[in-house]
């Protein structure tokens, strides 16, 4: 648990420092991974197997969020470039 908490803290450090937007998305990615780990640990500590469903949902959200952010970055760059060509 201590290791995971330190990892979470370091993830937040990068989230705040992150010089570019993709860096922040990367930090969010890492934080969600740590969340999955913490949920797994909590499921074992409290002896509740239902919590694994939460991990499944978190994994789905992780993938969708990263892909959505990546697509958004790509589209916005292309749109800006096109506007510059026109203007």
């Amino acid at each position: 648990m201590g290791m995971l908490c330190i990892a979470l803290l370091l993830g937040f450090v990068r989230l705040f420092l992150g010089p570019s937007l993709p860096d922040r998305v990367l930090a969010l990615d890492l934080i969600t991974m740590i969340g999955i780990g913490i949920i797994a640990l909590y499921a074992i500590a409290t002896d509740r197997s239902v919590l694994l469903d939460v991990a499944i949902a978190l994994g789905l959200i992780l993938f969708l969020a990263t892909v959505a952010f990546a697509t958004f970055f790509e589209r916005s760059t292309l749109a800006r470039r096109r506007r510059r060509e026109r203007g």
């Binding site: 937007l21 993709p22 970055f73």
Partner: peptide
Amino acid sequence: MLARASYFLG
């Protein structure tokens, strides 16, 4: 996808 987008983003 993130690496690809960041490369295009410069």
